[in-house]
Design a protein around this nucleic acid. Structure first.
Lengths: 221, 221, 221, 221
DNA sequence: ACCTTCGGGACGACCCGTTAAT
DNA sequence: ATTAACGGGTCGTCCCGAAGGT
């Protein structure tokens, strides 16, 4: 309980008492992350909060409304932080790094909620699902534009922006799968390390013809 | 159903009729992938096969034993194919490309099973879970060794092999999230495109000092 | 709500403000009539009144005490009005018509409460149930006495008073099942129309022997 | 259990084994009649049948589907029997008596189901509700036509057919409220007694002017 | 060998009438 | 009058087993 409250407080800033619903949502988030949405019963959520499962329904409408709330909040947060990150002027590389740090910063702050988001967003129904799909698409476009900018300005090689975005977002999105918050690496460290690899590449010789060689043997879409 | 049966036959080769259990497993795999494990009831599986749910239990022990079977088979398959891929001699790059193609080739062949694997391996209990963890670890090591080889032979830059593996495996593992089998891209295409980005990098100038710069400014969480 | 309040005022007369309890009871009555007792939750009643369900319990003891109150009031009202109707002197027919008008007049004034009464009186427990049974019995006796009077005075045919009462009370009791207050018929109209049928009969020829004929042929079952 | 089975057998005739569903429906009917639909839980139904509540759902879809089934069957039965009753030729009176006997005959055969029908038909949803409304309307029309025939042939007085039907159907519909199957009266007895009252009337003098007198003295609401 | 029928028994989400603290 | 909760209920669904039919 202490943990829950302090987490809420941290997120919502000092002084403002977190509403009971926010506390429930925090607990639910943690449990959904630990056990999975389906395996987390309302009884478990209740007992974690020290109340009966029925009492939950003083504050929530349905279990899946909680999931929706968690998912939509995070999807919006990703989008907003990304927008904020690219408004800062700077080189394409700087902005890409800002995007990476913003992305993993959210993971750092809201680990459980992010995990719940990744695992469950496809389960949302109808309009909620479509809203998420749309947000995810616009999120990708923010990345793609930065890469495109870099290519056009000559800062980046004339690669296919799409594949760069795929590699970058894959790397970022996969982090929750292996990242342990107690490890020595901060979110920024990871973002920079991943970007270093992506930006620098691996091959010693700058044989840029290789790309076209391998790519050329398929007519492409 | 035709699709299911022929898929089974293809996989088992030699025209041998698939056992009833294999048919059940194929159907279950498809449903677990479509609906999720928890939302797939034994009644749904049965009705998809044209039998009652109770009749399933002539062939299986429990529902989660089916899941175990699917997951473990795929985990082993990934490992075996990777091992096979690196025994072929060749440059580090060639072997890395072979690993990528092998990885995505499995996705191509067994899309549903692979998805089920990704989504559910963490749910396995005790020794099964540990078996998977171990297989995944050894799988990563195969990748790491190739990268390390490349670095030592001078074929690759003296980067941190770990991060290269992270980026590569992330990119590969994330493919199921966006890959549509009806699209114009084959598994090999994708593997090569991803590797091109990784090997070549993005930045025009090879300012390798950037890495240390950005990494050094760590205040930490 | 306006409707409810004015209805209450009308019923209690003398301009005295209806107590809060009366307001609750009016709202509950309306909801019990619309949704049925079981389907009307205390939360619905509260929200209709603009308060929380818990706040209801400042005014009431239990939900079923409200039901009791509604039912008993109506049962008493039926009885009292019937008693008042027969004290007026007049022919048996006049008194029967007065009874009919009184009965349907209550329906007109307190449609919802009457409906609640009909639908739920059997659910009352123990002494409350017995009280209602007794009131209903005495109510019937008032009707039976008037019919008996009419027979003995020669105003009515020498029929079995019991069956006359059954037909009359059935007709009156069934009115709520089809009566719409917005229709063109007043309670008095209906009472008179029903009594006209009952008093006059349907058959053209006054073959009073028919009654015994049909009744006599039956040992049956 | 014995009671249930024999009741089923009686209705379905000898030899044909009643399906399990029919048995459940019989038990549910009895309980719905005794306790009311809302107060009859699936657990009670199960325990009455000697099985767990969950096992009920091998045979039924939902609790309210059982209610629907009971109600619709009875509504149809009323309609079919009425249609059969009027196809027999005879005087209007004969046909009216046949209708009355048919109506109460159903009550006699299926007391509980009829009661459940009366108490719950309004709770059916959407199309089911509309189906019942329609059946009830056509049922009334059968009665109205017979009365109209009687009037036109001169067998009945030139009264308003509508009110005759109201009185007759009210009397018949109200019977379940007071009828005890163990009493000395058969369904046919009751039907005939009610019809005697209705056909013969109560008033000694056949003063047919009364109707207009009483009706005219009210201007209407 | 394969399937059906019938069932067990636990548990799912959710809702009930009601109370205590404020 | 509110807010939060209780505690036991609701219907419905789950996975699984056993008996028996072919």
């Amino acid at each position: 309980m202490n943990r829950t409250k302090s987490a809420t407080r941290r997120r919502r800033g000092r002084g403002s008492a977190p509403s009971r619903y926010e506390e429930l949502l925090d607990t639910a988030t943690r449990l959904f992350a630990q056990l999975g949405y389906e395996r987390t019963t309302v009884r478990i959520i209740g007992s974690e909060l020290g109340i009966e499962s029925g009492s939950l329904y003083t504050h929530i409408q349905t279990k899946d409304q909680m999931l929706r709330d968690i998912v939509i909040r995070i999807a919006n947060l990703f989008f907003e932080r990304a927008e904020a990150a690219v408004t800062e002027s700077g080189s394409a590389e700087d902005r890409l790094r800002a995007l990476g740090r913003a992305h993993l910063g959210i993971l750092d702050e809201q680990r459980d909620a992010v995990w719940v988001y990744y695992e469950n967003w496809r389960k949302l129904e109808g309009s909620y699902y479509r809203e998420i799909v749309s947000l995810r698409k616009r999120y990708e476009e923010i990345f793609a534009e930065v890469v495109q900018d870099g290519i056009e300005s000559g800062e980046f090689k004339p690669v296919d922006a799409k594949w760069v975005v795929v590699v970058l977002l894959s790397s970022l999105n996969w982090v929750p799968q292996w990242y342990s918050p107690n490890g020595p690496l901060s979110a920024s460290d990871i973002a920079d390390s991943l970007l270093n690899v992506l930006l620098t590449g691996v091959r010693t010789t700058n044989d840029s013809s290789t790309a076209s060689r391998t790519n050329s043997r398929r007519p492409k879409r």
